[in-house]
Design a protein around this nucleic acid. Structure first.
Lengths: 233, 233
DNA sequence: CCCCGGTTCAAACAGTTGTTTGACATTTCA
DNA sequence: TGAAATGTCAAACAACTGTTTGAACCGGGG
């Protein structure tokens, strides 16, 4: 009663190297949902298959085992994240750095604050950060490192050439930390300030706040001597 | 061979409501280690009991079940965190707000960057934020809310009375986010910049950076009109 | 027609999980 | 000493885990 004669593609001949795509794709979608809500270890193959309307043996048949299914989901995660982030990085490199910083914050926040199916992969990434699996290396290399280097470039433009590279890196981390916070600490925020937890509707407001906070900090620290002043009480 | 005639307290009479403390305490310590490294679901009662040198039935006998053992660990977590944070909040309320901000950042960072046994409860808290259990409510109420309100008080002093309360809250969140980042994203940092991941040795440097960044932002935003200027490109 | 590669299925597999059991040990109080 | 409370233990429990098995199904090509 759960799957009524799933649509089968006609081009899936038995001789072709690729079998019917339906079950495999449904398995991937269902796995993303379950992995996102339960985590890798707590997610069960049976629950994934039940959600996909497939037999328990389907995971073993189509992916080999649970771990390789997770890897496939995470590969899709990285692919989607890169698709969202790449255009923001490449577009309008001649824009003023303040504007580019705002665009970066907004695109990353839109991933963080996503709701519904779009939020699945962000949730999986958040779990992967605290409880990494072997698949994290690939995500860092393909998605996070380009993001980090882009942001460092923007920060460099804002603070000028005199600031050491190590400081630029720390400054960039202070920016992203404000964004990721609303993903990692959402359960805490929901309990601290019930009812006013930022969702997709607050994208504009949050973008404005984080960008303004970061710009004020970067401009203040770029002024020579201000760093020392900020330190001494 | 693992536990040689554990020290038994004389005052543990059968009539008293509390039995011998040894096994129970060792169970608590071992559970903190295992819960911190594996998470609640992936941690097994058998591993905890093995680490504690106790029988598998000990958890059921002393705590009822695995869930109540976890609650007991988290209660201890909140207690220790409050013990570290409370003196920083209460001490020297007459100090200049910049200095109090630095003290707050430092005390929180010292928990975040802790290594060895001291890091266990921070690790457990980090997990609880992403994968909350029913026990998170108590931790938020007893530890995190006082911390948040203290920080908002400091921020209020720094930005003056004209800034709306909602903005003060967002500003305070931008400060703590920079601190928690080094806990939540440590696995990512280790892969992005191998070998130079901040540990307890970088406590001073990180405190300086986050405090300076936040102070520059707060002072910049406190200047009237600066917020609008920061927004427009 | 029948066979064949690809796919699905119910059933079973071996292993691990949290928890319980009943016997045994130790201590305390009468 | 005897009885009762308190704690510990090896063993077993039922439930669940990921994975495998062998039979069934299905569409086309011989």
């Amino acid at each position: 009663m759960r799957r009524q004669a799933v649509q089968r593609t006609k081009e899936s001949g038995p001789g072709g190297p690729r079998g019917p795509v339906a079950t495999r794709a449904q398995l991937l979608d269902a796995a993303a949902v379950v992995f996102a809500s339960r985590g890798f270890h707590d997610a069960t193959v049976r629950e994934i298959c039940r959600a996909a309307g497939a037999n328990v043996a389907a995971v073993s048949y189509h992916f080999g085992d649970k771990g390789r299914l997770y890897s496939a989901v995470l590969r899709e995660t990285g692919r989607r994240a890169a698709l969202i982030a790449a255009p923001v990085r490449d577009a309008a490199p001649a824009n003023p750095p303040a504007k580019r910083l705002g665009a970066f914050v907004r695109s990353m926040l839109s991933m963080i604050l996503a709701e519904g199916p779009a939020s699945l992969h962000g949730q999986i990434l958040a779990r992967e950060m605290i409880d990494p699996t072997a698949a994290l290396d690939q995500v860092v290399a393909e998605f996070m490192r380009p993001q980090a280097e882009h942001l460092q470039g923007v920060v460099r433009e804002l603070v000028g050439p005199k600031v050491p590279a190590a400081d630029v890196r720390r400054l960039a981390l202070s920016v992203v930390s404000q964004i990721l916070f609303y993903k990692h600490c959402r359960p805490v925020l929901e309990r601290l300030y019930p009812g006013e937890c930022p969702g997709a509707a607050q994208l504009d407001e949050l973008t404005r706040h984080i960008t303004a906070f970061s710009l004020a900090a970067l401009r203040g620290l770029a002024r020579p001597g201000s760093k020392r002043r900020a330190l001494e009480p």
